[in-house]
Simulated scan of single mutants.
Amino acid sequence: MEIPVIKVLYIDDEAHNLTAFKASFRRVFSVFTAESAEQAGHILEQNDIHVILSDQRMPKMTGIEFFESILTKFPDPIRILITGYTDISAVIDAINRGQVYKYLTKPWNEDEVKNFITKAFEVYQLRKENVHLTEKLIDVNQKLELIARHAILS
């Protein structure tokens, strides 16, 4: 069985954080980086991203606002908010508005981030499999209903 490459997008307005993230995880994941929500949007349009990490405090748009803005167009990627500030209202907003899977603080622990990304990808895969199985179940159910109708009419 082939092990899938996990595609991760990290958004942060601080270039040195993007460089550090890419250096830390490029051998483990397929890493995409963006310095703004706008850049991130372009990356999402061109790539099938599995996990998105976003800094909370960025100019123009916070991480939560970014996650909220992509929910309808890109609902599948699992979202992780990462920030240098501990703000309980941001945590609540992240969960309620941005449907965030995890909330991490900077500076990050490499092993912890790697573990969270891997677990987030497992959630991504399970959701995809759930959709696939639901579609199969609906199809089989429709076929059974058709067979039952024919049996009743015969």
Rank of each mutant, 00 (worst) to 15 (best):
A15H: 06
R26Y: 08
R26G: 05
V28C: 02
A23L: 14
N17H: 05
E35R: 12
S36R: 02
D12S: 10
F32I: 07
D13E: 09
F29C: 02
Y10R: 01
Y10S: 03
F21R: 02
R27F: 07
A37H: 11
A23W: 11
E14S: 08
K22D: 08
R27H: 13
F29M: 02
H16S: 12
T33M: 10
V28L: 09
A20C: 06
F32N: 03
L9Q: 09
S30P: 04
N17W: 04
Y10N: 02
S24E: 03
E38K: 14
K22L: 07
D12V: 10
T33N: 06
E35Y: 08
S30L: 15
F21G: 01
R26S: 15
D12T: 10
A37D: 08
E38I: 12
A34L: 09
F32T: 05
F25T: 02
F32K: 01
R26H: 12
Y10W: 09
R26A: 13
T19M: 08
V28I: 14
T19P: 04
D13S: 09
L9I: 15
F25D: 01
A34R: 00
S24V: 05
V28N: 04
F25E: 00
V31E: 01
T33S: 14
N17I: 05
S36I: 03
A37V: 11
F32L: 12
S24A: 15
R27E: 12
E14Q: 12
N17Y: 03
A23Q: 12
D12Q: 07
L9K: 07
F25Y: 07
H16M: 11
S36G: 10
N17L: 11
E14L: 08
V31R: 00
S30W: 01
V31T: 02
S30T: 13
Y10M: 13
A37M: 12
T19I: 15
I11R: 04
S36L: 03
T33A: 13
A23D: 14
R27I: 07
E38C: 10
E35S: 15
T33Q: 04
D13P: 12
A15S: 10
N17P: 08
H16I: 08
S24Q: 07
F29T: 01
T19A: 07
Y10F: 15
E14V: 14
F32D: 04
H16W: 15
